[in-house]
Computed example of a mutant assay.
Amino acid sequence: MPQPLSALPPSAIGRCGLILVLALTLGLAPGGCQTLERYDRLGDRLAQATGLSDAAALPSRDQIAASPFAQIAVDVAGNRPTVMTLETVQANGDTVWTSSDLVKLVLRGARLVQVAGVPDELRATMALGQDPVAATGRAGLPPVPDGLQTARHVDLDTAQGYRTVVLDCTWHWDEREQVEIAGASFATQVLVEDCSARALPWSFRNRFWLDTASGFAWQSLQHPNRGEPSLIRVLKPAG
């Protein structure tokens, strides 16, 4: 069984202000930043924009190569990216990443399954059947037919309390895209996951940029909770 992340002090995130700044930058009308639909539309535009965040905030390719640690960069709502280093690989293959301000997250393959140290923590994720992006060690793109339906439940710890939510999701392939990350370029195929909660007014779209040769997820845009999407980019893979 994967080990739970320890509870950590929440870090403050200026959500509405970040949304308004990004809206103006991307040519979107300001306002309505409190709604989930607004976050989703902004996530769609972020995914299509060139340079999803400030490239100068990322380490150089030489710095990445010189580091002995695996690294990822995580942006929340288009904020400047936070570089996180690999803390450990759990027995089931989950990778645990930590930042200098003690935010921790866990990836299962490309799936973000736990987040701690933020206002709305994702405590656990369990697939109810298959999860096309949770596998590790796969060679090539996953065999996902358009319209594939999956489900999972997530445990959320929020200011309103702790609750388990079941998500129903539908998958489809999008276009091929060349992804640039800290000076490196990767040919990818975009896999899209549209999800909705059974008992909450919550729906969202995740995207995964998968290497066309290996199937490795170099980049993803995921919604770990009912707030802003998180853009995850792999700077130096684990292992």
Rank of each mutant, 00 (worst) to 15 (best):
Lys104Gly: 10
Ala49Pro: 00
Ser196Lys: 02
Asp101Cys: 08
Ser53Phe: 08
Leu22Cys: 05
Glu193Trp: 06
His223Trp: 06
Asp211Gly: 11
Ala116Val: 01
Gly147Gln: 10
Leu112Asp: 13
Leu102Gly: 05
Leu86Lys: 02
Ala182Leu: 11
Leu167Gln: 06
Val106Asp: 13
Ala23Met: 15
Pro229His: 01
Arg205Phe: 04
Phe208Met: 05
Ala127Trp: 03
Leu5Arg: 08
Gln63Asn: 11
Arg163Phe: 15
Trp202Phe: 14
Glu175Gly: 06
Arg45Trp: 00
Cys169His: 04
Pro229Cys: 00
Pro68Ile: 08
Cys169Asp: 09
Ile181Leu: 13
Arg233Cys: 11
Val96Leu: 13
Thr82Glu: 13
Gln71Leu: 15
Trp209Ile: 01
Ala29Gly: 12
Arg176Glu: 14
Val165Phe: 08
Asn206Arg: 10
Phe69Thr: 05
Gly31Phe: 04
Val96Trp: 02
Asp168Ala: 11
Gln178His: 09
Val234Met: 14
Ala66Glu: 12
Ala23His: 14
Glu180Thr: 14
Arg80Tyr: 00
Arg61Tyr: 00
Phe208Gly: 08
Leu231Asp: 04
Tyr39Asn: 06
Leu26Asp: 02
Val21Glu: 08
Phe69Trp: 04
Asn79Cys: 02
Met126Cys: 07
Pro4Trp: 01
Asp168Asn: 09
Thr82Val: 14
Pro145Asp: 09
Phe186Gly: 05
Pro229Met: 03
Gln71Met: 15
Thr85Arg: 14
Ser230Phe: 01
Arg176His: 11
Ala66Met: 11
Leu105Arg: 14
Arg123Asp: 13
Ser220Asn: 06
Cys169Trp: 01
Asp44Arg: 08
Ser6Met: 07
Ser53Gln: 10
Ala134Gln: 06
Arg45Pro: 00
Val179Ile: 12
Ala135Arg: 04
Leu102His: 06
Asp174Met: 13
Ala184Ile: 01
Thr85Asp: 09
Leu210Ser: 11
Pro132Leu: 08
Asp146Val: 04
Leu122His: 12
Phe216Pro: 13
Val133Asn: 01
Thr125Ala: 15
Asp54Thr: 08
Lys236Phe: 02
Thr85Val: 13
Gly17Glu: 09
Met1Arg: 13
Met126Val: 10
Val234Thr: 14
Gln63Met: 10
Ala184Val: 03
Leu22Val: 03
Arg176Gly: 13
Tyr162Gln: 15
Asn225Tyr: 01
Ala110Asn: 12
Val118Leu: 15
Ile13Glu: 03
Gly183Gln: 09
Thr170Ser: 12
Gln90Lys: 04
Cys169Asn: 11
Arg226Pro: 03
Arg226Asp: 07
Ile72Leu: 12
Val165Ile: 15
Gly140Phe: 04
Ala73Phe: 02
Leu107Asp: 14
Val234Phe: 05
Ser11Met: 04
Val103Ala: 06
Gln222Met: 05
Ser230Thr: 00
Trp171Val: 08
Glu87Ile: 00
Gln149Asp: 01
Pro142Ala: 12
Ala213Thr: 10
Gly239Met: 10
Met84Ile: 02
Ala199Leu: 14
Gly78Asp: 10
Gln130Gly: 10
Glu175Val: 14
Gln114Tyr: 03
